[in-house]
């Protein structure tokens, strides 16, 4: 049996589940936010591992019968209102290591394993791996020092951009704010840069952006993302309403290096973002092991869900690189 371990409203997981259903399979679904309010577990240790069940309002998941897991954006647990901070912390950590340990130890094919996903979320690690496999990565500097930051910006012939390393969301003044990729000027740099490492990167003079979905089995599906909006050209996530999408052929060499990248980080699916310049160079920006692709598949008709379903249903022979 296949387990969908995902947020209840994940479009990607819903689509994969539908493809599996079309193939005559009825996957189990478990959303970590259901625990403990809408789910319970019991498992006993045997010489073959933990045997037991997770019971939800939808099904009784037999842990021993899980052969593959599609892991996509787990959500925080839901505890009763009114617990004290120490009580909430106790319940959260015990659940995290109890339920988390139980799921992590499943002897199943993971697409992809949460620990590997967590490792791959480090953007700095991604950039190292991308460079190692030969992908083109824009000139970059990570610093919390004023002078190197200013010098880097001033030596980029088409300018420099600032990108967060992880924390894209800021809440203050009761507002939720996002930090997009932003063009920066060296004169704005001041000593406040010393409070955290800041990532600055060469501003790629792009012809278009591309999001490509690559699987460890060799599927590589690319979508060109174009816009005439100046802000969206800098960061297309700022203006979804001004974008156009079309399938794009990914150069074989780029596709091969992306598969090598997945192998290096032990992940089965990667949602890669590239900028493509007028010379045809594909510049690696980042990869998200649990990235969004459903709306792109719907816009372009690319069979991404089918490719993920293939990964979940195939045998466990080693993946070619």
């Amino acid at each position: 049996m296949i387990l969908i371990l995902a947020s209840e409203d994940s479009s990607e997981a819903q689509w994969v589940s539908q493809i599996l259903a079309n193939r005559g399979m009825s996957p189990w679904w478990f959303d970590t936010s259901w625990f403990p309010s809408r789910a319970s577990l019991t498992a006993q240790l045997t010489s073959f591992g933990w045997h037991g069940t997770i019971t939800t309002s939808r099904s009784v998941i037999d842990l021993q019968a899980v052969s593959a897991v599609y892991y996509q954006q787990s959500q925080p647990f839901t505890f009763p209102v009114g617990l004290s901070e120490p009580e909430l912390r106790f319940a959260t950590i015990e659940t995290r290591f109890g339920l988390g340990g139980l799921l992590s130890s499943l002897s199943a094919r993971w697409v992809s394993h949460p620990s590997n996903v967590a490792d791959a979320e480090y953007r700095i690690t991604q950039m190292t791996a991308a460079t190692a496999v030969g992908l083109a990565v824009p000139a970059s500097i990570l610093t919390n020092e004023v002078t190197p930051a200013k010098q880097f910006i001033e030596t980029q012939d088409s300018g420099a951009v600032y990108k967060t390393i992880m924390h894209k969301i800021v809440s203050e003044e009761s507002l939720v704010k996002l930090i997009h990729t932003t063009r920066v000027d060296s004169c704005t740099i001041d000593r406040r840069i010393s409070l955290a490492p800041h990532l600055l990167q060469h501003n790629v003079d792009k012809a278009f952006d591309a999001r490509i979905i690559v699987t460890s089995r060799g599927t590589c599906l690319g979508v060109a993302i174009r816009t005439d909006d100046s802000a969206a050209r800098q960061d297309w996530t700022t203006r979804y309403d001004r974008l156009t999408y079309e399938p794009v052929k990914v150069p074989d060499e780029v596709a091969r290096k992306c598969r090598e990248f997945l192998a290096a980080l032990h992940i089965e699916v990667g949602v890669f973002d590239f900028s493509v310049d007028s010379a045809g160079t594909w510049w690696f920006l980042e990869v998200n092991p649990c990235g969004a692709w459903a709306w792109l598949a719907e816009e372009t008709g690319l069979p991404v869900a089918e490719a993920v379903a293939d990964l979940l249903t195939e045998d466990n022979t080693p993946c070619p690189v």
């Binding site: 371990l5 970590t32 954006q73 787990s74 959500q75 925080p76 647990f77 959260t92 995290r96 339920l99 988390g100 799921l103 992590s104 949460p114 620990s115 967590a118 979320e121 967060t164 992880m166 924390h167 894209k168 969301i169 800021v170 809440s171 203050e172 003044e173 009761s174 939720v176």
Partner: peptide, 15 residues
Amino acid sequence: RFPIGLAGHTVPIST
């Protein structure tokens, strides 16, 4: 880190 979500993807609303 599993499975409470990614750091930086869950933030408390602050005044």
